[in-house]
């Protein structure tokens, strides 16, 4: 159940950037702060790793988001979960 802090670099096109912010805000797993220039701080809280991964991809592909930087990540406490075992 990862919690992560991301900084999104928004595109120079104000229209697409605004649409990206609206799309991000519409997702319950994402919390957005006010943008700092073209930088948007967000916190992401997903229920499981699959959703975390999928959400990250979705953000990455979102028009209006040029780049994602990750600045914080917490790991689940259940590191012995079947999912990790499957990875090995």
């Amino acid at each position: 159940m990862p919690v992560s802090g991301l900084v999104l670099t928004l595109s120079a096109n104000g229209g697409t950037a605004a649409e990206a912010i609206s799309a991000l805000k519409a997702r319950p797993e994402i919390e957005c702060e006010a943008p700092r220039g073209n930088k948007l701080p967000v916190a992401v809280d997903t229920l499981d790793r699959t959703k975390d991964q999928a959400l990250w991809r979705w953000i990455n592909e979102l028009p209006g988001v040029d780049f994602i930087d990750v600045v914080f990540i917490s790991f689940p406490e259940d590191e012995d979960s079947p999912e990790v075992a499957e990875a090995c």
Binding site: K39, P41, F72
Partner: peptide, 17 residues
């Protein structure tokens, strides 16, 4: 944790205008 994640993102994004 979530508060820390957001605080880290805010700090890295820089000051508000």
């Amino acid at each position: 944790l979530k508060r820390s994640a957001m605080a880290a993102a805010v700090a890295a994004a820089g000051p508000l205008p």
